[in-house]
């Protein structure tokens, strides 16, 4: 697939580095990172990445609320929730908020690749 641009949102910098490394190994480009939901909302329109990976549990503003706010600004934004939270109810809330996919941590490169390809094929362009 073609190289895509990403914003990686997580309150853990080591997780940001790990996800960014996987994305770069897959041939993509991380154009921006954010540690809170509010930062992600603030950065989105500046960088307009093809895809956002969004954690749920973060200080300041969580990933569900940030997803809603970004979708309000751009209904075509592609947001993939990447979280440790395994509860089915949380998946439903994320999809209701406008997320296009849900990847459970710990993240594996094969799993990330498959989700990105499927989601971009469905929602990209």
């Amino acid at each position: 697939m073609k190289s895509l641009t990403f914003m990686v949102v997580d309150d853990s910098n080591i997780t940001i580095k790990k996800i960014s490394k996987m994305l770069e190994d897959l041939g993509h480009q991380v154009v921006c990172c954010a540690n809170t939901g509010q930062e992600a909302v603030n950065h989105y329109l500046t960088y307009k990445p093809n895809i956002i990976t969004m954690d749920i549990t973060m200080p300041d503003m969580d990933g569900i609320e940030a997803t809603k706010r970004i979708i309000e600004k751009d209904k075509n934004a592609i947001i993939v929730i990447v979280t440790a939270h395994g509860q089915e109810q949380m998946v439903i809330e994320a999809i209701d908020a406008g997320a296009k996919g849900y990847v459970l941590k710990p993240v594996k490169i094969e799993k990330l690749k498959e989700h990105i390809e499927n989601i971009y094929k469905k929602y990209g362009n």
Binding site: A84, G86, K105
Partner: peptide, 21 residues
């Protein structure tokens, strides 16, 4: 975060969101 987050699906609360700090 990963271990407890993954485990909450087995904590037995169906239909009610469980929040993690």
């Amino acid at each position: 975060n990963i271990i407890i987050g993954n485990a909450v699906s087995q904590f037995g609360e169906k239909g009610l969101p469980i929040n993690l700090s």
